[in-house]
Simulated scan of single mutants.
Amino acid sequence: MADLIHYVKTHAQTFSALPLTDVDGVILAQLAYVDFHALNRHHIHRLADLTDPLLIKDVVRLTWNAAANFNLLLTLQHSPRFRNIRWHDWIKSADLETEKQFCAVTFDLGPSTHYIAYRGTTATLTDWKEDFNMTFMRDIPSQRSALRYYQKQASRHPGTYFLGGHSKGGNLAVFTCLHSRGFLQNQIQRVFSVDGPGTKKPLPAAVQAKVTKFIPQASIIGLLLEPQTGYQVVKSNAFGFRQHDPFTWEVNNASFALLTTTSRFSQLTQQSVSTWLSQLDNATKKEFLDSLFSVLRATHYQDFRDMSANWEISVRLILKALSDTSPQVKHQWRTVTGQLIGTFFSGATETMKPQLKLPEVHLPALPRKKPLTKTK
């Protein structure tokens, strides 16, 4: 089975010979997770110069799939197609008070051709909280930062732009295109959303024409807040939530292996969560999420990895925080989670109805009995 790394090994053409493909767009979006701060400290700004395996191991250490990202960088370094790509204007900002975590980098693919990669969700509590804030906020801080970043780059480095990102990064890329005006939107050639959440409302036709959105067949994240069906379903060799990882997606030459529809479970989850969110007002969503994350922060860990590595301590602190919450909060939790469970099972029942319908049974006709005659 071909994957992202196999694609890099088998496509040696330069970008002038083979323009940016769907797979290129996903690979560059994935690179946003790399620790460019460490690379900048070593004065490395080109993939071909990334030759130290120990440094490569260090800059992918905190990514979701460190082994696959390590192999990807090793392969890109030798690729005639990718090795001369340069990056600049890497930015990373976090603000616990405003619940913002933002990161972006610009790649130069050729003269006046740029790709802005927005980083997706990491393992930090702040990142996850900002993601969930999308359900009730008109826009989140990272979305506004993504738009400003593109505006600044387009002013400094005029030319054609591609935007992309995985997970939350895909949402940031689409948001940026959606809210760019005039010349700035005209400069954007394509936008890649790699299993990124939607924008809650249908996109204008002009923006939708530029957006290429990929989701795996068991997608959950990519279908959140997504009112449209203008996405492509990619075949993955993984199971369940692991399909969110693009390294599990199957590649067919310069494209992805596509399916006609998502899985039944993915459809059920999207429908149930959408229905559930529509039942809650924004104030309830905010209060529920604030109380949920306050319990998680009681562990004093800011990263889910640290929480998992110290799970016994974490569980104990979470249980204590739960017991200390007010009766009003506990009641709200029961109400909100109860609505979600009820909506999910209601949707599951409707989904299963066609499968539970009993087949019609046709019994053979019974022979007619002869009428009884009286005996004398």
Rank of each mutant, 00 (worst) to 15 (best):
S272E: 01
T325C: 13
G198T: 02
W64M: 12
Y115L: 04
H157W: 11
L363N: 11
R242N: 14
Q243P: 10
Q328E: 15
R83C: 01
E350F: 11
Q302S: 14
T343M: 14
L18E: 11
H300A: 05
V295Y: 02
L356S: 08
Y301I: 09
A173G: 04
T126L: 03
D306R: 06
N84C: 08
F183C: 02
V234F: 05
L296N: 02
T121C: 05
P371S: 10
Q185G: 00
A117V: 05
D3H: 12
W311H: 11
Q228E: 15
Y231Q: 01
I313R: 13
L50Q: 03
S167D: 03
L223E: 03
G196D: 06
T113P: 02
F214E: 07
W276G: 00
Q77R: 09
G169T: 00
I116H: 03
A94G: 12
G164W: 00
L109Y: 03
I91L: 07
F239G: 03
R156I: 10
T261W: 04
L4G: 02
D303L: 04
Y231E: 00
K210M: 04
L292M: 15
K100Q: 11
A66V: 10
A254R: 15
R264K: 11
R305Q: 13
Y33F: 10
K320S: 14
V194K: 01
Y150D: 01
S180V: 01
D24N: 06
Q77A: 09
G159N: 12
L258T: 05
I91N: 01
L18R: 10
V211E: 03
I318D: 13
E226A: 05
H78P: 04
M352H: 12
F132D: 07
S155M: 09
T176Y: 05
K213L: 02
T98N: 08
I44E: 05
E312R: 15
S155P: 07
N186D: 15
I221C: 12
R297N: 13
A48L: 09
V8N: 08
H331T: 09
H166I: 01
H179S: 01
Y33E: 05
D303N: 12
K357N: 14
L62Y: 12
P364D: 13
T373K: 11
L20Y: 03
T299Q: 00
Q302V: 12
T284G: 08
D22Q: 04
P202A: 12
S255L: 04
E360I: 11
K353W: 11
A309N: 14
N69W: 04
Y301A: 13
R46I: 09
R41Q: 14
I56W: 00
T160N: 02
R81E: 02
Q339N: 13
L363H: 09
F239C: 09
L203A: 04
L259P: 05
G110H: 03
K374E: 12
Q332K: 13
L317Q: 15
V194W: 03
I215Q: 06
V336S: 02
M134A: 07
T248M: 09
Q267L: 07
W249Q: 10
I188S: 05
Q232T: 12
T199F: 06
A206F: 07
S79K: 01
E287V: 08
A365Y: 04
T106D: 01
I140F: 13
P246S: 11
